[in-house]
Design a protein around this nucleic acid. Structure first.
Lengths: 232, 232
DNA sequence: GATTACAGTGTGGTTAGACCACAGTGGTAG
DNA sequence: CTACCACTGTGGTCTAACCACACTGTAATC
């Protein structure tokens, strides 16, 4: 077994045993190296992997944001991984979109009315009506979809859904500039968002799921994603 | 931007541009370091991250398996990431199981009859009948479920489904020893597998999806997973 | 006394250079 | 022809140093 894997095992055990919890600080790299009798290089390789997994965040200096602390951001980590595999042509963009439709319509169908996430989603829709530019709109759009997914109460589905979106974010983002009429598209998307939220609040999960599926598929189809067999 | 991220960007660009394809070799670490004008350490950190993502595999020595080659194993990589997040208590085991049911029943419903994956699945069932011990059985079981998922033709769903299983593999594996009657459970699982495959081959996707959902949920429930609010 | 300036401390970030184990390659002695 | 062995290039590991950064405490200054 390679040295940095030993360090990974040790840290994972600390997490599993509860000796290291979310928000907690890892020992300094030099201290860990001495404690485990390995070089600082190996410790750093392990920390890098955990950072790529979204399990820790490393910060220089001293004080609040310094040191290596335990976080929980699986979404961005999974997204990066998927993005790389899309780059290798192993994961087709169409499959990403299809899976996103699957997860997100499932979540819409099971969204619990009255949870804070739905209120946040509603507030985001108001902000989107006043979004000054496309990028701001897309940023709020992402947050809306995540909030909607979170309302279903399954953290794994939320994380995966967010990662799927993130994996093709740049790719799809480039295509929005080529849309024939962004203002019209934007107006349609906003109307669809409100229809989805209304269906959820009316306890009509089936309707909400249908609307979400059509909403996502419609956007990517219009942007030209999914029909192209050779992305990048 | 940190140095190793620069290396990551460079490699990702090589992949996106097609200059580096699946099965291809990365330049040696020393060569890459010189080419990008960074230290070998930084190159190694980038390679470590890619390795954790399941994008490359590093091998020592010379010849066929030597050097750093591009692979495509998102499943194991995503599984490790999820496992770590389960360890931080951020992802409940119950959510993992629920998501696996979702993905796998979706795949069962859309499995295409006649594809090679289904034939492989059938062959695996025969091998499972003759499995000498639990570990062998569970290994074949994993391959059966992956083959079934692949029959739906969505690489992302297959990878995610495999990763979900892998994330709680050890956790669930420990519990199989505590089952009241493994022989009975094993016989039941084998019967359920055949019923699932039969439903798929009869083009009864709805039935297959139902059976798969009950099959997975039943196993984890019997093993005591999902009802325990505090795993590990 | 309050404020400012600055050295001190501990963090991760980066580098250079060395040595190791490993696995093929090819020459060489038998 | 065979067996051996030095050679080469790969990743794996380690050491020791230096840097930038951000806070902390102290001391000089107003």
């Amino acid at each position: 077994m390679r040295t940095h894997e030993l360090v990974l095992q040790w840290i994972e055990k600390q997490l599993s045993d509860g000796d290291l919890a979310l928000g907690g600080r890892l020992p300094g790299e030099r201290a860990m190296a001495e404690q485990l009798q390995v070089s600082r290089t190996s410790v750093r390789e392990a920390v890098r992997i955990l950072e790529a997994m979204g399990v820790v965040r490393a910060g220089v200096g001293s004080g609040k944001d310094a040191g290596t602390v335990v976080i929980a951001e699986p979404g961005s980590a999974l997204g990066s991984t998927l993005r790389l595999h899309v780059a290798t042509r192993h994961l087709p963009v169409a499959d990403i979109v299809e899976t996103r439709v699957l997860l997100e319509s499932w979540a819409a169908e099971r969204a619990k009315v009255g949870v804070p996430e739905l209120e946040e989603a509603a507030a985001l829709l108001d902000h989107m009506d006043a979004a000054p530019d496309i990028d701001t709109f897309l940023g709020l759009d992402a947050r809306f979809h995540v909030a909607l997914a979170q309302a279903a109460g399954n953290a794994v589905v939320s994380a995966m859904m967010a990662s799927l979106r993130g994996a093709i974010e740049n790719y799809a983002g480039e295509l929005t500039g080529n849309l024939p009429d962004w203002d019209a598209t934007c107006a349609r998307l906003r109307a669809e968002h409100r229809a989805i939220l209304t269906a959820v609040n009316n306890h009509d999960g089936g309707k909400a799921a249908e609307l979400v599926a059509a909403h996502i598929q419609g956007f990517y189809t219009e942007a030209g994603v999914g029909s192209d067999p050779s992305p990048n």
